[in-house]
Amino acid sequence: MSLLHMVNKSPFATTSLKSCVGHARAGDAILLLEDGVYGAISGTGAADILAGLGGDIPVFVLQPDLAARGLAEAELAPGLTMTDYNGFVDLATIHHATQSWL
């Protein structure tokens, strides 16, 4: 039983990312999408929050949302995995349920 956690709000505006990280468990995955992708920028408080995750919780970033916001991959915190809409669907299918941190 594992969850796909989805964060679609900027970590600089809400506590969604912090709450998500506080509830994710080993075997779960996190997907940053929409304004949630601002959490992928390196050298920020958001990066510190993600750094607190164990390696057994992968963090994915939806690339089209990054591109839309002009965030090049080079600016991103280490350890994140880019994905696209097909990858998004795959993530949704390999976990038994999803939780949206609105």
Binding site: M1, H23, H96, T98, S100
Partner: peptide
């Protein structure tokens, strides 16, 4: 405990 409860559900509706 709440994190575990979340994982035990079939469907999660978030508000």
């Amino acid at each position: 405990t709440l994190a575990r409860i979340m994982a035990e559900n079939d469907v999660i509706l978030s508000f």
